[in-house]
């Protein structure tokens, strides 16, 4: 489904601050697979996601999704193929627009937008049903501005928006990191439910070892722009946080 070949990105090339963010990363994902990506700050995990999403252009390498070469497509054109949830709850939805307007925008992802009404009454009814399944009471607040919702509610809404239009790939960029522990757990449970229900091929970047182990069927650890450890299936299910910390340290280069 997803095929990444030799993806590289260096920030500030040929300057004093030159820093390799991603170094020849190759990665294949099968349809319906749920991959968690773990790594410290500057490990390249967010860069990987941003390159897939088209926020930045890679220096080298290619990205194929379901046979389509995404590498040259601008960010908004890739949205037809993949969807995203950001770390900052404020970024994934339009705070000045209503809940239903946000959903209507997501319902048109990857489609031509013309001069038909931006939201139809048939859509309103189906949005109401979808929101009710979140069990957050949002179905009663469809015409409230999203800016009035809590961070957890906004992430839940963004998740729902990301699941619409049957994306071939869902990218989650530390999407629970900005929430309090209780809300983060709820949003993560909802993530697992939505990914399962819609059968989404998913990459979740996280810095929580616990979440990386508990979610999905495959895990990779990144450091200094490379994949330094990978586990899946039984091997992954048997992992403990302590094992991962061990991996972090055992592979660490000598301090200099």
């Amino acid at each position: 489904m997803l095929n990444i070949q030799g993806l590289s990105k260096t920030w500030g090339r040929d300057t004093m601050d030159e820093r390799v963010a991603l170094d020849q990363v190759s990665l294949q994902l099968r349809k319906g697979e749920f991959l968690t990506v773990i790594g410290g700050n500057g490990s390249g995990k967010s860069t990987l996601l941003n390159l897939i999403a088209g926020v930045h252009q890679p220096d080298a390498g290619r990205i194929y999704l379901d046979g389509v070469d995404l590498t040259a497509l601008p960010e908004h054109r890739r949205a037809a193929h993949l969807s995203r949830v950001f770390q900052d709850p404020l970024l994934g939805s339009a705070g000045g627009m209503t809940v239903e307007e946000n959903l209507a925008l997501a319902a048109r992802r990857g489609r031509r937008r013309g001069l038909c009404w931006g939201i139809t009454s048939a859509e309103r009814a189906s949005f109401k049903k979808m929101l009710a399944q979140l069990e957050l009471g949002l179905e009663e607040r469809m015409s409230s501005r999203v800016g009035l919702l809590s961070g957890g509610q906004r992430q839940a809404l963004t998740l729902l928006m990301a699941a619409m239009r049957d994306p071939k790939l869902l990218l989650l960029d530390e999407h629970t990191a900005a929430l309090d522990p209780k809300t983060a757990a709820r949003v993560l449970a909802l993530t697992n439910r939505i990914v399962g229900e819609y059968g989404l091929t998913t990459i979740m970047v996280t810095h929580s070892m616990r979440d990386a182990i508990d979610c999905g069927g495959r895990l990779i650890m990144m450091r200094e722009g490379r994949i330094v450890y990978a586990a899946e299936g039984v091997q992954k299910n048997g992992l403990k946080a302590a094992d991962l910390i061990g991996k972090f340290q055992s592979d660490a280069p000598a301090a200099c």
């Binding site: 960010e75 908004h76 054109r77 949205a79 969807s83 925008l105 048109r108 992802r109 990857g110």
Partner: peptide, 8 residues
């Protein structure tokens, strides 16, 4: 950012 993520 949201707009681009929704294909706008």
């Amino acid at each position: 950012q949201m707009a681009r993520a929704q294909g706008i």
